[in-house]
């Protein structure tokens, strides 16, 4: 059976991991390549680098980070942040990323998803959706710019649309739950997972391992993304997988 994937996400700024990993064995907590290697050793299933560099000259540094990472680790690597054009995507894939994640650029220019999927294949185009619940309702709105800007898009409509455009995967972040450590937005994840024919990665809200179980079992997520619970050494990837396995879910151990 296909395993549930556990995906750590690293925020990278100007070539350095923001809030470095608090693992004892690391010599340089800010080096993304070392972090990637540590996660490979722990048995992470994939890795996400989110480039939060504000300026565009940070892009070349990111290419170099991705090149070094792809030369050393043998697992899928997704890179997101600041990719605006087919050329940006091509450069990142050529640097060694297996997939790219598009967020604001996909909303501003949906044709980018279509063109990129045609050129590079659906499997390497991830569309990241930042969702926030409309207060007092059972619907969610798409936000951009890290949850600051509200759009006119309904999350379920947008999820279906990006699949039609050629997204091979959806990275779904609940802006309500992100950083709260009180669990994923199960209802949101379930709705999107049922609406989209492609895999959905749940993100935002993991505080303990039961939260992972909940979002896979009840939220029907294909994969779970988490940052702080792994970076701070609260739990290892292996502990997370054992928890899922004990709850009857297929994992790679």
């Amino acid at each position: 059976m296909l395993s549930v994937r556990i995906i750590p996400c690293l925020d990278v700024k100007a070539g350095r991991v923001v809030k470095g990993l608090q693992f004892e064995q690391l010599r340089d907590v800010g080096d993304p390549v070392e972090a990637a290697r540590a996660y490979q050793e722990q048995g992470a299933d994939e890795l996400v680098f989110l480039d939060i560099t504000a300026s565009s000259d940070g892009r070349n540094i990111m290419h170099e980070v991705v090149e070094r990472t792809a030369s050393e680790i043998f697992m899928p690597l997704t890179v997101g942040g600041g990719l605006r054009s087919v050329e940006d995507i091509r450069a990142m894939l050529n640097a060694g990323a297996d997939k790219v994640s598009l967020n604001t650029a996909a909303i501003q220019n949906p044709d980018l998803v279509l063109q990129a999927a045609k050129k590079f294949g659906n499997q390497c185009i991830v569309v990241a959706i930042d969702a926030r619940r409309e207060p007092g309702t059972d619907s969610w709105r798409v936000y951009t710019h890290g949850g600051r800007n509200r759009t006119d898009l309904d999350v379920l409509d947008w999820a279906k649309r990006v699949v039609e455009l050629g997204a091979g995967e959806i990275l779904l972040t609940s802006m309500d739950c992100d950083g709260m450590q009180s669990g994923y937005d199960i209802e949101l994840t379930r709705r999107v997972s049922e609406a989209a024919s492609v895999p959905v990665i749940a993100s935002g809200g993991a505080g303990n391992l039961d939260h992972l179980v909940d979002v896979v079992r009840d939220g029907k997520a294909s994969a779970v993304l988490a940052a702080s619970i792994f970076h701070f050494g609260t739990y290892t990837i292996r502990q997370a997988k054992e928890k899922l396995r004990d709850a009857g879910m297929p994992v790679r151990l």
């Binding site: 395993s3 299933d45 499997q123 091979g168 024919s197 492609v198 895999p199 029907k220 294909s222 790679r252």
Partner: peptide
């Protein structure tokens, strides 16, 4: 499979 629609692409680790 187990009451869930299988996603396409088949993406991830399998045996």
């Amino acid at each position: 499979e187990n009451g869930r629609a299988l996603k396409i692409p088949h993406m991830g680790w399998n045996t």
